[in-house]
Every structure is written in structure tokens, then in C-alpha cells.
């Protein structure tokens, strides 16, 4: 049985009077790719931000290997944000060097350049990179310190099919290396291919949880796409009422 690396209990987050996350409980096992799905405004990004240690929960707790988040938690995790701006006028090489210097034991830059195929545009201003090149760079920056857990917030949004598949290959490699991946996406095909376990959220609460196979089988639909459409359509509220 794989070790539980992150355990979330009764997690809540409110901003003024708006409840963004409303009592989540789930466990993420070491080495698995855990998918957070849900329509816009479901609370995925807020949940991710709390797991990343960027947002402080209003209630509840997150445990790392059974303990509170350690002081050096930022050294253990790597984050690829949904929309990250980089400093103007810097190249991928400058950025790799900058982010490497934030950590005590960075990965060798040569390895990262090779692994994420950055060499063709290594010295190009990052503002002139294509969508796919940019995502590969952001992923390399997330991996610059060889983290145990990697957060991927909609990593393929806006990419063409070829770039998307390229990125999937990289994600599969990361999984094969034994890293724990936490992924949010709007593409059900992506979730089905990459994720071992899924948590579907709606209005800050858990709607469904399980492996992609289990969820499709239990809902008696052809694939995740069909399941997600049925959940996020007009029947969403009804479905939620049935579940809760």
C-alpha cells in the first residue's frame, strides 16, 4: 500500500463572505497523479493554493506524511502555475539560473535543458516563446530543485494538440520517476490518460472521488467527458443534492 503523502481534513477557505472551499477531505498517495477537476469557480485553484502552502486555510488542516507542513515545504514541492509571468527581457537560461539559486540542491541545468528540450530557445527572450515552449520552461522551473511533489495547474490550457501531447509525455516521465503529481485540468481526456485518482469539485465541495475507471463505470457513461458534461450541465445542482 503506497504511503499517504498529503492528507486533507475538513479544508475550508472563505474570502469575506464568499466560501471558495467548503470542507474537503481527501488523501494523496506517494507516486500517484492526483487530478482535481471541476467547472470554473469550483474551488480547484484555491484548493491547489492551500496545498501549495500559498494560501492559509480558514479551517481544517493539511498534513504531509502525517505531520504538519514542514518549514522547508517549499523545497519539497514544485509548482507550475496556470498563468505565470516571468521577468521581462530574461531568457530561459537566465530563469533557470535564477530559480536554481533559490534552492540548496538544484538539479544540474544541463539535465533540465535536455529533459525539457529547451536548447532550441535557451537564449531567446521569454516573451517570444510559443505556448508549448513556455509551458516546457515553466515545468522545468517547477522541477529545478528536484521536488518530491509537483503541482500542475492546467498545464496544457491553450496549447495546440501536438504541444499538449509533448507535455503529456513529460508528465508521464515525471510519474515514472516516482514523483507525486497534483494536476488540475479542463481536458477530460488528459485526466483519463494521466491521472490515477480524481476528485471532482463543485462549489467548493467534493462531488465525486475515485479512479477514472471507477467513476466512468459507476456513472454508467462511456468516458469521463460524458460524466463531466452530465455533472456540469443543468443537472449539476440536482446531482450534488443527491450526493450530499
Amino acid at each position: 500500500m503506497p504511503e499517504v503523502i498529503l492528507e486533507v481534513s475538513n479544508l475550508k477557505k472563505s474570502y469575506d463572505n464568499v466560501v471558495a472551499v467548503d470542507g474537503l477531505d481527501f488523501k494523496i498517495k506517494k507516486g500517484q497523479c492526483f487530478g482535481l477537476l471541476g467547472p470554473n469557480g469550483a474551488g480547484k485553484t484555491t484548493t491547489l493554493a492551500m496545498l501549495e502552502g500559498i494560501e492559509i486555510p480558514s479551517e481544517g488542516e493539511i498534513r504531509y506524511k502525517g505531520n504538519f507542513l514542514p518549514r522547508n515545504y517549499q523545497e519539497l514541492i514544485g509548482i507550475q502555475f496556470q498563468a505565470t509571468a516571468l521577468q521581462d527581457f530574461l531568457t530561459p537560461f537566465d530563469n533557470l539560473k535564477l530559480f536554481s539559486n533559490f534552492y540548496d540542491h538544484p538539479s544540474p541545468m544541463g539535465e533540465l535543458i535536455l529533459k525539457f528540450r529547451l536548447d532550441d530557445f535557451l537564449h531567446r527572450d521569454t516573451r517570444r516563446l510559443s505556448g508549448g515552449q513556455r509551458q516546457r520552461l515553466l515545468l522545468a522551473l517547477a522541477l529545478v530543485h528536484n521536488p518530491e511533489i509537483v503541482f500542475l495547474d492546467e498545464p496544457t490550457t491553450g496549447l495546440d494538440p501536438r504541444s499538449r501531447r509533448d507535455l503529456w509525455d513529460i508528465v508521464k516521465e515525471l510519474k515514472a520517476e516516482g514523483r507525486t503529481l497534483i494536476l488540475t485540468t479542463h481536458y477530460m481526456e488528459e485526466a483519463e490518460i494521466l491521472c490515477d485518482e480524481l476528485l471532482i469539485l463543485s462549489v467548493g465541495r467534493t462531488l465525486l472521488e475515485g479512479t477514472p475507471d471507477q467513476l466512468v463505470r459507476n456513472a454508467n457513461v462511456d468516458n469521463l467527458d460524458a460524466l463531466f458534461l452530465s455533472l456540469t450541465g443543468e443537472d449539476l445542482v440536482k446531482t450534488q443534492e443527491v450526493i450530499t
Binding site: I54, Q74, E75, I79, A83, A85, L86, Q87, F99, F102
Partner: peptide, 16 residues
């Protein structure tokens, strides 16, 4: 400008 573009948020996720 850094804050508005999300760059500061990216830096927050590092030990800086």
C-alpha cells in the same frame, strides 16, 4: 507590475 502579472506569486512559491 510584477504583482499584477503574477510574477510575485511565482516567487512566493520559492524559498525567497
Amino acid at each position: 507590475r510584477y504583482r499584477q502579472s503574477g510574477y510575485l506569486r511565482r516567487l512566493k512559491a520559492t524559498p525567497l
